[in-house]
Design a protein around this nucleic acid. Sequence first.
RNA 1: GGAGGAUUAGCUCAGCGGGAGAGCGCCUGCCUUACAAGCAGGAUGUCAUAAGUUCAAUCCUUAUAUCCUCCACCA
Length: 882
Amino acid sequence: MKAVELAKAYSPKDFEDRIYQMWTDNGTFGPQKEGAEHFSVVMPPPNVTGILHMGHALNNNLQDIIVRYQRMKGLNTLWVPGTDHAGIATQNVVERQLAKEGLRRQDIGREKFLERTWLVKDKHHGIITSQLRKMGCSCDWEHERFTMDEGLSKAVREAFVTLYERGLIYKGKYLVNYCPKCGTALANDEVEHELTPGKFYDIHYPYADGSGFITVATTRPETLFGDVAVAVNPDDERYKGLVGKKLRLPLTDREIPIIADAFVGMDFGSGMVKITPAHDPNDWACGKRHGLDAINLLNPDGTLNENVPEKYRGMSCEEARKLVVEDLDKAGLLVKITPHDHEVGHCYRCHTVVEPYLSEQWFVSMRGMADKALKAWKDGDIQFYPKRWENTYTHWMETIGDWCISRQLWWGHRIPVWYCQDCGKMSVSRTDLTECPNCHSKNIEQDKDVLDTWFSSWLWPFSTLGWPDKTKGLETFFPTQTLVSAYDIIFFWISRMIMASEEFMGKAPFKDIVITGLVRDKQGRKMSKSLGNGIDPLEVIDLYGADAMKFTLCYLAAQGQDVQVDMDSFKMGSRFANKIWNATRYLLMNLEGRNLVTITEDKLDTMDKWIYGRLNTAIRTIDEAMKGYHFNEAAQAVYSFFWNDYCDWYIESAKQKMLHGSEEERDIAVSILMDLLEKSMRLLHPFLSYVTEEIYSKLPNNKGLLILQSFPEVEKFETEEATSQVESLQEAIRLVRGVRSQLGIAPEKKIHVVIRTDADYKNKEIFVKEKSLMAAFMGAGELAIDLDESIDISKAFPAAGLGFEAFVFVREAIDVEAEIAKLEKEIAKATADLEKTNKKLSNEQFVANAAPAAVEKEKAKKAEFEDRIQKSTEHIALLKTL
RNA sequence: GGAGGAUUAGCUCAGCGGGAGAGCGCCUGCCUUACAAGCAGGAUGUCAUAAGUUCAAUCCUUAUAUCCUCCACCA
């Protein structure tokens, strides 16, 4: 056999792109094992607004590891990639572009606007998919989907109409969360509450009959124009007699009543609350209870409308607040202003303060679906990793409110509802309507709003497989097995997918829900654009390679914990990949003139059986870790097997055979090395896919493309005895190496070692059998396993192991006198240094006046010198005993 | 106001009731022709604090402290 040359340096750029191309050219990502048990995963679709960040890298790399592992385990595997149209976010991107040109979306019209949005989508889609390829994701591009493609649009319509038919979708005028900047309603969970500094304004509301006034406290004085009452607690003794009295609303002519409602807290503020149903959810509910009107004060853009006195119209809430407060003050109605921090809702997309806004919207009734989703969890159909997220899930499901799904946007799935201008009838339809089904008038108009983005993504696990059509893909790959996602979208996405899937498919969309942590920087901060602390996955790949990134992330991904990284973190994976590369290079160099032989048990010695045992341990650990999604444990097993066991011990020991063995022995040694290398590549492939595939292609014993090979099975060659024996061997070697190091014996100096084993020591055999190996590893010129009468151990340096003792004769290796002289010189120098330092430290002036850091430094020096002196003294004592 | 995390080596973190660990950094000695992105050896810890359960606690229980998330309509 000829030696195989491998490039001298590990350079991932030389092969990563080529290998990805080869994988796709050979159709390796698609399902391979028709008829076998299926394993499918849907990729959480990234938004087409941006490019992938480190969080995506973590998420997709972990999915890739799972999918590659299961593929190698022989399952019929499918990983569905795709992207999300991300309604608000994407629309915002385009609106920002327009704003730079001095335009608003209304200026160019819906059609032109959408054209531009599709361009943005195409651009980002291209970037995102190329990033996924660079990372090495083995998702099936044949199955790629987009939330607004034809099939998914059909699914969205089907879902909407079906729910409508089931009476689960309704339209109505309600108080919803509204982002004035985005110009659209939001769902409850799209609002982020944040502690915001504000003020409490105590305001006098005079009685209508002029008999005095009461005081209300509010954080939002500008909404007083929408007040329809002032409420007190019915049990509040202070105000009992006031209920029913009329008040004159400040700055207006309007009269409002005092009412009693139990929601008012008696001990909060003045115990009197102004009721503004159109601008506060509590007041809305209160207004409903009392049959009060709701007066909307806002235009869709967040400015005040015609329901406020003229001078305030067109102002933003903040502007109006200032003026209203001023005017109240002038009117003598402002009592006091106190600072008051409170939770204020902000838009999760643009961070603008969200207004409660009275408007006509579409809603989904969630209660029934949530109950089904809860049952799925109770029945064990779904399981979270780590388990603690189940609390979050059930709590959300139990307290769920109806879902506002209409958005006043242009980018998204248009609501499939048509209104007839003639007969006034509303039609909900799976297909586009051109005439009214009721009166056949052509004068119909589709609802202008679009659906919440999550209304398409909640169908993702089955819509991507062809639903509502009964496709083969759906039949084969639904339900999926594992969903990998970060915890920030448990509510938005994961929970809703479970509900949709139970509703439309009658079962849970996946079994295992793996919740990853967030990727943070080394200060523990979330990576974000605004902080500029993000790491671009492509930069990592450029610097260290995709394997280095994947392996490092996997190694750091303790279940559910956040991952903190900086650029340097990825050196770890890079070094490991480099190590694999070089180990391979060495083995391939040694193929020259060798014949690979079949490995049978009788050809194996203890070391061989040991390494097969180590391989087994790694396989078992990985299988177990992957079962429970403990990625870090799997990565550690891979790492320590290959590096610490295979490279550090096994290859090193095999070198002795290669050096001194017969032709036949060398053939066997190489055959075993290559067998282990081949298996190692299969073991490592899910974690370092590119480098292992590249190496695999060079192996004389490869069986085709690595990605399609089977994951290694536990070997039968392992024996407990071999494991135990080699551990003893390692112990003895480490012991002697320790002595050498302690005495500073140079590697080229050979020493004389005698090992004495206890009478009942069970692993003596390995010492005898592997004597030459031990000698080589210890750097021993002579090694004796049995203690001879003639040997005077009092002249040797002793080191005790478990069940044996090693005696190291170092006299020949070192010049004791010279060594002692060297040490004494060192002690002298250290003593002198110490004196200087002590002098400084005993100088009161120095201690009192010098910079504290300088004093600390001197103290540290002192400790160091003392330490050095002590060590050298001990060392000398040791040498003198020899 | 609820809920959940975190607290272990200088740094980042594993550790899933019986020996305190990894990577990086640090120290010592080595370019031993696979790898200096390496090899060998080494140092460093009141496992946040205080009680408790147990033969045994970094791990379980209960408090406390500090930090971080998430959820929640108190005007």
